[in-house]
Design a protein around this nucleic acid. Structure first.
Length: 128
DNA sequence: CGCCTTTGACCCGCGC
DNA sequence: GCGCGGGTCAAAGGCG
């Protein structure tokens, strides 16, 4: 399972016609009524690429921001199977992620979360 | 003990 | 109106 700083609870899995790989559906479990949703599926022809589609925005604050140095998300427990450098570089090269990163940085500076809509993260991650 | 994943069934919108 | 495809629910079992 791919972790990104939020707590997700899987509520469904479906194999679609245009993608032989099963697609997983996640919902945010940190807040009781959080509209944020997440769909995870493998890329069509490169099975090592995991595509995570985020829908909606979180109602609640982010208690564990994965991009903050003080966060434990990148330090030890979240990504046991790959190198952090590979993880970071694969994220940084993605334009959509850059927007998220910018938002996260802006939030650490301003203390406010900026509005953002659905986004697509193409993570070069291995599946757990 | 509580939260999570799993899995099949159900539901809903759309095209024919 | 029916069939199909995609999204969600909910019960059961597992793991920390």
């Amino acid at each position: 399972m791919v972790k990104d700083g939020y707590q997700w609870r899987k509520y469904g899995q479906k194999v679609t016609k245009d993608n032989a790989s099963p697609r997983a559906y996640f919902r945010c479990s940190m807040a009781p009524s959080c509209p944020a949703k997440k769909k995870v599926q493998k890329s069509l022809h490169d099975k090592s690429i995991i595509v995570a589609t985020y829908d909606g925005e979180h109602n609640h604050g982010v208690s564990n921001d994965p991009f903050k140095p003080s966060s434990s998300a990148l330090n030890d427990s979240s990504i046991p199977n790959i190198k952090i450098e590979e993880y970071a570089s694969s994220l940084i090269k993605d334009p959509d992620f850059t927007a998220v990163l910018a938002n996260a940085v802006a939030k650490t500076i301003t203390g406010q979360e900026h509005k953002r809509l659905g986004l697509n993260l193409n993570l070069n991650l291995s599946e757990e």
